[in-house]
C-alpha cells in the first residue's frame, strides 16, 4: 500500500512530506523502543510509535524507513519536523492508540514482514 492509503485508513494528518505520499510501503513495525525497531525492522517500512524525540527520526533514517506515524496524537517539535524534511521522511500523526492503529493497517493488508 502507499503512504496515502495509510493516511486515509488512520485518518492521519500529514506533518511533513506531503509530496512523497505516493511512496510504497511493504511492511510495518509498531514500537516505542528504538533498539527493537533497529533489530527487527525491514526495508520500505512504516514505523508506528508513541515515542516523540529526535532519535525516532534518526532511527528511521538508519533503516530507510519511509514514514513515521505518531500515535495517540503525539506532535513532534520543530527540530524533528525539520530533520525529517531534510531526510525525505514522511511524518503522520493520528489520534488512534498504538494497538488500534496497528490493527487497522493489518486488517487492510499491511503486515509485519517475515521474521
Amino acid at each position: 500500500m502507499t503512504v496515502e492509503d495509510i493516511r486515509k485508513i488512520l485518518g492521519a494528518k500529514v506533518l511533513v512530506g506531503e509530496e512523497h505520499l505516493s511512496e510504497e510501503v511493504k511492511s510495518a513495525c509498531g514500537s516505542d523502543m528504538m533498539s527493537d525497531v533497529l533489530a527487527y525492522s525491514k526495508d520500505h517500512s512504516v514505523l508506528l510509535t508513541g515515542l516523540c524525540n529526535p532519535q525516532v527520526v534518526r532511527t528511521a533514517e538508519m533503516l530507510d524507513i519511509v514514514c513515521i506515524v505518531f500515535v495517540r496524537g503525539k506532535k513532534p517539535d520543530e527540530a524533528m519536523l525539520q530533520m525529517a524534511a531534510e531526510r525525505g521522511i514522511i511524518l503522520l500523526s493520528t489520534g488512534h492508540r498504538m494497538f488500534s492503529a496497528c490493527g487497522m493497517l493489518y486488517e487492510a493488508g499491511l503486515h509485519g514482514g517475515a521474521i
Binding site: 523502543m33 533498539s35 527493537d36
Partner: peptide
C-alpha cells in the same frame, strides 16, 4: 528507557 533505548539490544 523513556527515550526509546536501553532495551538490551544495542
Amino acid at each position: 528507557r523513556s527515550l526509546g533505548f536501553g532495551a538490551g539490544m544495542g
